[in-house]
Simulated scan of single mutants.
Amino acid sequence: MRITNGYFGNTMLHSLQKSNGKVADLMTQISSGYRVQRPSDDPIAAVRLLLIDRDQAMLGQYRSNIDSLSIRLQQNEIRLNGMLKDVESAYELMTWATDGSNTSADLNAMAGTLESLRDNLLSQVNATDNDGNYLFSGTKTDTPAVTYDPNAAVGARYRFTGNTDTQQVVVGQGVAQAANVSADDMEALLNQIDSALELLKDPNVDVNDPATRAVLEASQDALLNGVGVLGAKIAKLGGAQNTISLLDENHAAMLVSNGQAAQVIGELDYAEAYDRLNNYVTAVQGSYQIYSRVMQLSPFDVILR
């Protein structure tokens, strides 16, 4: 059977294109350092690499959430520490005020300090973040945590207007952490301080009057309870920050581990790749030489012999 030049040429061209394609693939692998450039290179490895990429993206998002949450928790803690200092100072003042040796003038002088502490406490309760969102209003971040109504009766002029719902932030697989702290318990405390302040401002206030002492001692008890409540909130925030810090460290370790796994799965064996490349290049060069020699042949060369 006679093989035509056209058929032979097409066959050789197809073979050369295939070999050149292999060479190009190897060059791409060598330049990138990864042997899996497309799923067909190694379907199983390609699937595993896709799963690792998905995990890496999720871990990166968790770490980003943790960074934002950490800033929010730190803001909350700073404000709560400020509240705690004000409440502790007010408690010390109330303890002093209940001393039976105080005169009316003494109690009137204390009113100015207590009023400043009350106003500062309200300011801390209604603190906002850099975006103007209220920190202690639950999920009602556009509403002050506590509002003041000057027309209401003394002891009822402060009202909690936020809610106690939590803003959950996903920080791990199936793990969420509350980003906010509610200030609902500050309503009663502010009203109790306000009641005591009204008495201390009275020019004729008598510390030994039973009604006066009852209000001052109730305020003292409320402030002591406030110290405990705020201390517990701060401790809870500290625990939350420790938790997310450990989670962040775990996520960072997993990112490194996944990166190493991806490298093992998809890393190119350079020695093997260069050996294969040399083989392909040699084959291509040989094919060109054979094609050139064959194309120079003629049936007349055989006849003449």
Rank of each mutant, 00 (worst) to 15 (best):
M1A: 14
N5Y: 05
F8Q: 02
G9L: 09
G9Q: 12
N10I: 10
N10G: 03
T11C: 00
L13M: 01
S19Y: 06
N20P: 00
N20C: 00
G21I: 13
G21F: 06
D25Q: 15
L26Q: 06
T28P: 01
T28I: 08
V36N: 06
P39I: 05
S40L: 02
D41F: 03
D42M: 08
I44S: 01
I44F: 04
V47F: 12
R48C: 00
L51M: 06
L51W: 03
D55A: 06
Q56H: 04
L59R: 11
G60Y: 02
R63P: 01
R63I: 08
D67S: 14
R72T: 07
Q75H: 02
Q75P: 05
N76M: 09
N76E: 13
I78P: 00
L80E: 04
L80M: 09
L80A: 10
N81G: 15
D86C: 11
S89H: 06
A90R: 08
Y91N: 14
E92R: 10
L93D: 04
A105P: 00
L107N: 11
L114V: 11
L114I: 09
E115S: 15
S116F: 07
S116V: 04
D119A: 05
L121H: 09
L122V: 04
A127K: 02
T128Y: 00
D129M: 03
N133V: 01
L135I: 00
S137P: 01
T141P: 01
T143V: 10
A145G: 03
A145W: 04
P150T: 15
Y158R: 05
T161N: 14
Q168N: 13
Q168M: 14
Q168R: 03
V171I: 13
G172I: 07
Q173F: 12
G174Y: 03
Q177M: 15
M186S: 12
A188V: 12
L189K: 07
E198V: 01
L200V: 07
P203W: 01
V205A: 04
N208L: 07
R213W: 06
V215C: 08
S219H: 09
S219Y: 08
N225G: 01
N225F: 02
G226Q: 00
V229H: 05
G231T: 12
I234N: 06
A235W: 09
Q241F: 09
Q241R: 15
N242R: 09
L247A: 14
L247V: 03
E249S: 15
E249T: 14
A252T: 15
N258L: 13
A262M: 03
D269N: 15
E272R: 12
D275T: 14
L277F: 15
T282A: 14
T282M: 12
A283P: 02
Y288K: 01
Y291R: 13
S292C: 06
R293L: 07
R293H: 09
R293I: 05
M295N: 06
S298T: 02
P299T: 10
L304M: 10
R305W: 00
